[in-house]
């Protein structure tokens, strides 16, 4: 019962804040609503026993990505931009497409076959020293070592690309 109440709270706040992110006229307000949204998604991860991801969600999404967003929003002077209409002309088409997509995806949900259950049951995770984070580390550095290295390359490309794109062009 308690889990259902917590889920209902998180779900209501997540849906409301995501609507507010989309609907806010001022991008700064959007970013701040998104901060609230990310904290509640982290709470949902805690309910699903993913402590490591909850911490990562707050540290990287709320701490790094959103600060980057806020930094850029404050860097650009958007005083004129927020006066005009916020939505474009294809508002109705976009609404129909989004609702249609939701209907199609949710109609496939009934067809989900119950998959084979893996080895990482809650009892196994509780019995492991270090819990969820230790098991994630173990899986990531053995089974997923190569994708992990590729992720580091992607981040390096992002660093270099961001510098190249955002720097002022040098006069030659």
């Amino acid at each position: 019962m308690l889990a259902e109440i917590f889920f209902a709270y998180f779900a209501v706040v997540i849906v409301l804040t995501s609507i507010l992110v989309i609907a806010s006229r001022n991008p700064v307000h959007s970013v701040l609503w998104m901060l609230l949204l990310f904290f509640h998604i982290a709470g949902l991860y805690l309910m699903l026993d993913a402590e490591f991801l909850a911490a990562i969600q707050i540290i990287i999404y709320a701490g790094a990505i959103l600060v980057l967003f806020l930094f850029v929003v404050l860097l650009l002077n958007l005083k004129e931009e927020i006066k005009g209409r916020p939505f474009s002309r294809i508002f109705v088409i976009a609404l129909v497409l989004a609702i249609g997509m939701a209907v199609v995806i949710s109609s496939t949900m009934k067809l989900l076959p119950p998959g084979p259950v893996g080895q990482y049951s809650m009892d196994m995770i509780r019995a492991t020293k270090g819990g969820n984070s230790s098991i994630i580390g173990r899986v990531m550095y053995t089974e997923f070592l190569f994708p992990f290295e590729i992720a580091s390359t992607i981040l390096l490309v992002a660093i270099i690309g961001a510098i190249v794109l955002a720097k002022k062009r040098l006069r030659s």
Partner: peptide
């Protein structure tokens, strides 16, 4: 929906 309908590129 937000991706398709908003005008502000940051949103």
């Amino acid at each position: 929906f937000g991706f398709l309908s908003r005008r502000n590129i940051i949103v």
